[in-house]
Amino acid sequence: MTPVPKLELGVLRSYSDSPPSHYSLKVESFSLMTEHSVGGYEAEEFEAGGYKWKLVIYPNGNEKRNAIGYISLYLEMAGEISLQSDWEIYVDFRLFLLDQKKGKYLVLEDAFAKENCFHGEMLRSPGFDNLMPLEEFTDASNGYVVDDTCVFGAEVFVCKERTKRKIERLLRVDHAVMYKQVWKVEQFSKLKAEYYVSKTFNAGDQKWQILLYPKGYGEGNGTHLSIFLSLADWKPTPPVSKIFAVFSLSIVDQKHADHETWTSKHCFTTKSWSWGLQKFISLSNFSEADKGFLVENICILEAEVTVHGFAKVL
């Protein structure tokens, strides 16, 4: 006899022995996701029914939906730019969580909407705001997160089913190593271009550059020095698609053996390939002789980069 699905808070829950046919996301460091995905983690695109989709996961809960302390999970349509402005797509979808203790998949469906409509103003499904309390989800005895590893999945059915499966892995770098790059910028007063880049350097098997706007950029234009850490070629080196890094950018005080330093962390992607400060230091402060930032028309910039994790598509 087929078990009767369980209805709970508008979510229809059942179990399946089979993995999701369209997409799986294996997170081998869930704690990394909770640390770096404050605004939600967007997984890689996958195809089903002739359209592209992606999972959006809020590991700490979707704050905008008052779901802090819960796992929030959504299906979102991707690649909508290539579609007609008047399109509507009705889909039946199921989201999955692997229960590693039972060796089965927990299957999640919207109990009130058999079909969900996607269109230009509704690219994301209503989804599951309060899918499960985070404490319950991370309790190893419940089987969803074991050894910091968990598995999400999705099946999307449009007019007809297509079973092209794509897997994305989110991995933590064990024994992450910090790399330091020093850039000596000479003849600073003669820099006329809008921006300059340092020599390319490697950190965490990725290629990076320091990006300098000598007259400022954005909010700092004309008043501040703007400095960024940037991926070379503006994209991660394949097969990596996302890079989680902690880094610092500094201007050396050459007179007092000191630094003006800013530290941050960021998820670098093709769409978010650089991160830094538009107002790093004011040009007036930078140019003062007794400050030591500009000596004999030379300034020295430093970057320290540690890659703690990455995502790759298999």
Rank of each mutant, 00 (worst) to 15 (best):
K6I: 15
K6Q: 10
G10S: 09
L12C: 15
Y15N: 07
D17S: 12
S18M: 09
P19M: 12
Y23M: 09
S24W: 02
S24L: 13
L25T: 01
L25K: 00
M33R: 03
H36N: 03
V38E: 00
G39K: 02
Y41N: 01
E42H: 09
A43I: 02
E44Y: 05
E45C: 07
G49I: 05
K54E: 10
N60T: 02
K64R: 13
N66Q: 15
G69D: 00
G69R: 07
Y70C: 06
S72F: 04
L73K: 05
Y74A: 03
L75S: 05
E76I: 05
M77Y: 04
G79N: 06
E80G: 09
I81D: 15
W87Q: 07
W87P: 00
E88M: 12
I89C: 11
Y90F: 11
Y90V: 03
F96I: 07
K102L: 13
V107D: 03
L108K: 06
A111T: 04
F112S: 13
A113K: 14
E115P: 00
E115R: 09
E115T: 08
N116E: 13
C117W: 14
C117D: 08
H119M: 09
F128Q: 07
D129A: 15
N130K: 15
N130D: 15
P133A: 15
P133H: 12
L134V: 05
F137A: 05
T138K: 12
S141I: 05
G143R: 10
C159M: 12
R162I: 12
K164A: 06
I167E: 07
I167A: 00
L170N: 01
L171M: 11
L171T: 05
R172Q: 03
A176D: 02
V177Q: 10
M178C: 12
K180I: 03
K184Y: 03
F188A: 06
K190H: 11
K190T: 15
A193Y: 14
E194Y: 15
K199T: 09
N202G: 08
A203Q: 04
K207S: 08
Y213G: 00
G220Y: 08
N221H: 11
N221V: 11
L225P: 03
I227K: 02
L229K: 07
L229P: 02
A232N: 10
K235S: 09
T237K: 06
S241D: 09
I243N: 00
F247N: 04
S248F: 11
S248Q: 10
L249E: 02
D253L: 06
D253W: 06
Q254H: 13
D258E: 10
H259P: 00
H259Y: 15
E260N: 15
T263V: 11
K265A: 07
H266R: 11
C267Y: 00
T269W: 02
T269Y: 01
G276N: 08
L283H: 07
N285D: 14
D290H: 12
G292Q: 03
F293V: 06
N297T: 06
E302M: 09
E304D: 11
V305Q: 04
G309V: 01
F310C: 04
A311E: 03
K312F: 07
V313P: 04
